[in-house]
């Protein structure tokens, strides 16, 4: 209601003004600057250091420094908190201590006599460790790779030639092969008759690939670490 009234009033005034302009024909300058208004005196609210408008503002830097110091202190706390959170999230992706402890197996090699194959459980799978005789090593080294289904030399599969370390899962359908059996003096899978040699390579039968060699190392003469 009020709005309608005031709109009508403005329109009427504008019309009256333009009418009068048209009738007199004189240009009327309308000044909107209001230079006659007094600037209020804020001296009572100003700091002493900025009361004189002709003097350089000496305290501005100091006061800004204080504000920025407060903001910066908050930012330091924020950076600390953010770092902690990122650390926690990234850390949650890494394996926990119990998993890491299970991931490696340490084997005393002096317990395994020459010519013997021993089975261990490692990461839920059987792990075959074979102490090969010099004759076996010689035989495996002399096998030409052109004869093999999955061509790998013996040197590619062992770290130390006396020790063969393979995962005891047949690459055909995942049975556990039998040690010291089969036509090639290595491993034999009873499920579908795959023959592996003493380097764990597939020689006969349906399996497509050699037995898998896990990463392993010998920290000293009598210890083997798999994993």
């Amino acid at each position: 209601m009020m709005k309608a009234v005031s709109c009508a009033y403005v329109r009427a005034t504008a019309q009256a003004l333009s009418n009068s302009l048209r009738t007199t024909g004189a240009a009327v300058a309308t000044r909107q600057a209001h230079t006659d208004l007094q600037v209020p005196d804020f001296t009572a609210y100003r700091r002493d250091s900025v009361k004189d408008s002709r003097r350089r503002n000496e305290s501005a830097e100091e006061r800004k420094a204080f504000s920025y110091l407060l903001v910066g202190a908050g930012a330091v706390g924020g950076v600390y908190a953010a770092k902690g959170m990122v650390n926690a999230f990234v850390g949650s992706m890494s394996a926990s201590a119990d998993v890491l402890a299970m991931a490696k197996i340490e084997i005393k090699l002096s317990d395994i006599a020459e010519g013997k194959s021993v089975t261990f459980k490692w990461r839920g799978k059987p792990l075959f460790i074979r102490h090969r005789t010099p004759a076996e090593i010689e035989t495996e080294r002399s096998v030409p790779t052109s004869q093999l289904r999955d061509p790998e030399t013996d040197d590619q599969r062992v770290v130390k030639p006396e020790w063969l370390v393979v995962i005891g899962v047949c690459t055909h359908l995942g049975c556990v092969p039998i040690a010291n059996a089969g036509d090639f003096g290595g491993y034999y899978c009873p499920c579908h008759g795959s023959h592996y040699d003493a380097s764990g390579r597939i020689r006969k039968g349906p399996a497509p690939l050699n037995l898998e060699v896990p990463t392993h190392e010998f920290p000293d003469e009598s210890t083997l670490v798999v994993g």
């Binding site: 100091e62 420094a65 920025y68 910066g72 930012a75 330091v76 950076v79």
Partner: peptide
Amino acid sequence: MKVIYNSLFKRTSTYAVAIMASA
């Protein structure tokens, strides 16, 4: 205070570096 403001807080780059270093 003035020295700190002019050397560290005035530029955003130095301000950010100062925050990270003090963090």
